[in-house]
């Protein structure tokens, strides 16, 4: 049982926080939806279609944020052979994959009316598609070995290797000519979005972030319980 002492300690801190994080997520998403759909003005060029931004951009940020967290957690798991890091990465992967799917699908629904295409193989879109494959590959690799520790190690290495894709996605629009426009919010000269559109976007992003943390704690609890079940069953087989 000592192997899970630290995940348990983590849960002792995370469990009391869970209701608060969940409440923050629900509140921010509700406020973000209201502001984005009712209060925010249409764009001077894109008209009402700009409202897709309020789901597209936060999910794109989360797709990157979750992957970066997953890579850091995998690195700690590889270096310190600590079960918590690996379980956190494993709990995060499906959430990140879902955010990536939402990002790609809403981007497609936005690109069709504005750009005139559902999909183009430009550097931004292609690198985000690769991000989705990395998430799926990570999840597949965990279960691909008979020996679970080997699967864990292989998946953690893939998560680390795939981390090079994160800066490529972020800077693809600056390094190469792309159909996708450059960054509007996270840039050196300050946001190029009017405050009446920036606030709904940021509130929605806080809601999405809180959603990730709440769901990650839930999934982590589930993973820790599953690991304990495996341990008990192994003990029964050996005795």
């Amino acid at each position: 049982m000592h192997r899970f002492a630290n995940p348990n300690q983590f849960l002792r801190i995370a469990n009391p926080l869970l209701p608060w994080i969940s409440a923050l997520s629900v509140l921010c998403m509700a406020a973000g939806l209201y502001l984005g759909l009712f209060q925010a003005p249409p764009d001077y060029q894109q008209g009402e279609s700009v409202r897709i931004m309020y789901v597209h951009v936060p999910s794109a940020w989360m797709a990157l944020f979750v992957y970066a967290s997953m890579a850091i957690a995998s690195a700690t798991a590889l270096i310190w052979r600590h079960p918590l890091g690996f379980l956190m990465a494993k709990a995060s992967a499906p959430i990140g994959a879902c955010f990536t799917v939402i990002c790609l699908a809403t981007g497609s629904l936005w690109g069709k009316p504005m750009w005139g295409t559902w999909w183009e193989w430009d550097a931004r879109m292609t690198s985000v598609l690769i991000l989705l494959f990395l998430y799926v590959g990570y999840m597949a690799l965990i279960d691909a070995f008979d020996d679970p520790t080997r699967g864990q190690r292989a998946a953690s290495i893939l998560a680390l290797v795939g981390a090079v894709n994160v800066p490529i996605i972020k800077f693809s629009v600056d390094w190469w000519n792309t159909l996708h426009q450059p960054a509007s919010v996270v840039k050196l000269s300050g946001p190029a979005i009017h405050p009446s559109m920036l606030w709904p976007l940021l509130i929605m992003a806080v809601g999405f972030t809180a959603f990730y943390f709440a769901l990650m704690i839930v999934r982590l609890r589930s993973e820790i319980a599953a690991a304990k079940i495996r341990n008990i069953r192994l003990g029964q087989v050996h005795s």
Partner: peptide, 16 residues
């Protein structure tokens, strides 16, 4: 094929 590209600026029409 012709695709439109937009820039990174977002604002309400009145502000523009």
């Amino acid at each position: 094929e012709v695709l439109a590209k937009h820039d990174e600026n977002y604002m309400p029409p009145e502000v523009a």
